[in-house]
């Protein structure tokens, strides 16, 4: 017993150091897979307010560029207005038909914090559960997808961006429909990769990649990027595809959160599939 106490006394500095390290590293590695609490992240009230003040200072840095983007989006929307159409047949009426039913709702948001040079980059949004944001909703901009909501507080939320190691969004090549998983290697914020496309499928360089919408997080057909490079994986019948993102995540500000109204229905149906027993 006395030896034990003597041991603790002798190594008390080192033991204290190890205790602090275990605490810090366990928080780090568990957060990557699942957020335990929102209080010690940028979704907490205090940090959210600090980041908001910081955003107030820096928000005008890309103002002219953002204005141009908004203008372009406005033009695209204006084209769909009834005023921009010429009536070909007089007496046409707009009928609210039952062929289409609303499936996704969109909530506008502003990114108040973003990074792109870490291994795993998280963005903070200025909206939270009060505005109807929930975990696992998709986030995107006009140019491309951004990520998936990872953690929500009352007024802020944290997005696990596509610049994260285990993002695994299902995407497909628009022309052929071949699908795979989106990954990021942690080096260049402009380039991602796709795994899981079999190399007997012909894939052309510079063909467009869009979301597949399989898991109900994103609508089908949102732009992701273009294939910039492809080569076969050694020893496996797969393509190793590099993808040039269509959105520049280094200066991202305005985003939309996609809310899938029919998600529960889809998940309920999919949970009926029996699990494979091997």
């Amino acid at each position: 017993m006395r030896d034990l106490f003597a041991f603790f006394r002798k190594f008390r500095v080192f033991l204290f150091f190890v205790a602090l390290q275990v605490f810090a590293l366990s928080t780090y590695f568990t957060y990557l897979s699942f957020p335990r609490s929102q209080y010690l992240t940028s979704a907490s009230e205090i940090n959210g307010k600090i980041l908001k003040v910081s955003y107030e200072v820096t928000k005008h840095f890309n103002l002219s560029q953002n204005n141009t983007l908004l203008q372009q989006e406005n033009i695209a929307l204006r084209k769909q207005l009834p005023q921009s159409f010429m009536a070909l047949q007089s007496g046409n009426v707009l009928i609210n038909d039952t062929l289409h039913k609303q499936r996704y709702e969109y909530i506008p948001a502003t990114v108040i914090k973003s990074t792109f040079n870490h291994r795993n980059n998280y963005f903070t949004l200025n909206i939270g559960s009060v505005e109807g944001v929930e975990r696992d909703m998709g986030v995107f901009t006009d140019n491309g997808i951004v990520g998936i909501i990872h953690n929500v507080s009352a007024h802020f939320s944290v997005v696990k961006s596509v610049l994260t190691e285990a993002i695994n969004i299902d995407v497909m090549v628009e022309s052929t429909g071949a699908f795979g998983m989106l990954k990021w290697d942690g080096k260049d914020a402009r380039i991602g990769s796709i795994t899981g496309i079999s190399n007997d499928i012909k894939v052309k360089k510079w063909s467009k990649v869009v979301t597949r919408g399989g898991s109900g997080i994103f609508p089908r057909g949102l732009p992701v990027g273009k294939i910039s490079n492809l080569k076969p994986v050694e020893g496996k019948p797969l393509w190793d595809i590099s993808l040039l993102y269509s959105e520049d995540y280094r200066k991202i500000q305005r985003v939309y959160v996609a809310k899938n109204i029919m998600k529960d229905e889809q998940l309920k149906l999919e949970s009926l599939i029996p699990i494979d027993k091997e």
Binding site: Y28, L40, K113
Partner: peptide, 13 residues
Amino acid sequence: IDTISDTYGLHAS
């Protein structure tokens, strides 16, 4: 620093 920049314990360690 971790809590503000979402690195969860990296800087602390």
